[in-house]
Design a protein around this nucleic acid. Structure first.
Lengths: 113, 113
DNA sequence: ATGATTGTCAAGCGAATACTTCACTATTAG
DNA sequence: CTAATAGTGAAGTATTCGCTTGACAATCAT
């Protein structure tokens, strides 16, 4: 049972969908409204609204409603969190690549049990 | 319609599951068999096998069967791909954060249509 | 005030996901 | 040879996902 880390979970889940990544690409050209975001994606306004909730929930996007138009922009927090996660894990993975020797030793140990 | 990028897609999908991330953490301690991988996770051997297929499909893990035991180890390709994706996108996001001015100008333009 | 624009809510639908169980094969140990 | 070990394959299940439709609310333009 892996201890749950909802922030990282939300993050990867959010980035796992191609439509949401396309939304991020559009937003990287500057802030735009929900309607303008939906146009090039070929999905409903409603769908975009749902994706936005997920993107906001993982701190990848921030939105603000003024009058009747909701403006969406990139929010760096999520990306920072992602980079931090990778940095923290990369060292472990690199270490693990050097462990072939240990692994073989342990293997012998096991066969002798 | 976002153009599909199956490699990145698989990658984020694979990392989106807490059990799979836990598997990676276990593997970062060195190569182990499927059974030893399953023990601390509290899921079936079958489930681990299914997760392994996904992790292999996204180049995060490599496995090799010798005799009746399949040994699993970290495969750096996937991680490298992830870091590359982030690096490529970070510059765009950073740019987008500087575009508030452009956005406001464009906003005026739109209200005058 | 009327009508158009912009977005939201609730419900539903088909597909995918993360599991499980049960049956089965292959390898190794005694 | 026999029995235990390690893993695989097929099928089933409950839940989640991405998306749609249709009804509605709020804002803005004329």
């Amino acid at each position: 049972m892996p201890k749950p880390q909802p922030e990282i979970d939300n993050l990867f889940h959010a980035l796992g969908d191609p439509t949401r990544r396309a939304m991020l690409d559009l937003l990287s050209r500057g802030p735009i409204s929900v309607t303008r975001l939906a146009e090039p994606l070929g999905v409903t306004l409603t769908a975009v609204g749902q994706h936005l909730q997920i993107l906001e929930g993982s701190d990848l996007v921030r939105t603000e409603k003024v009058g009747r138009v909701r403006t969406c922009r990139i929010e760096p927090t999520g990306f920072t969190r992602l980079e931090k996660w990778i940095k923290e894990h990369r060292s472990h993975w690199e270490l693990s690549l050097d462990r072939l020797g240990e692994f073989l030793a342990e293997e012998d140990e096991n066969t002798n049990r």
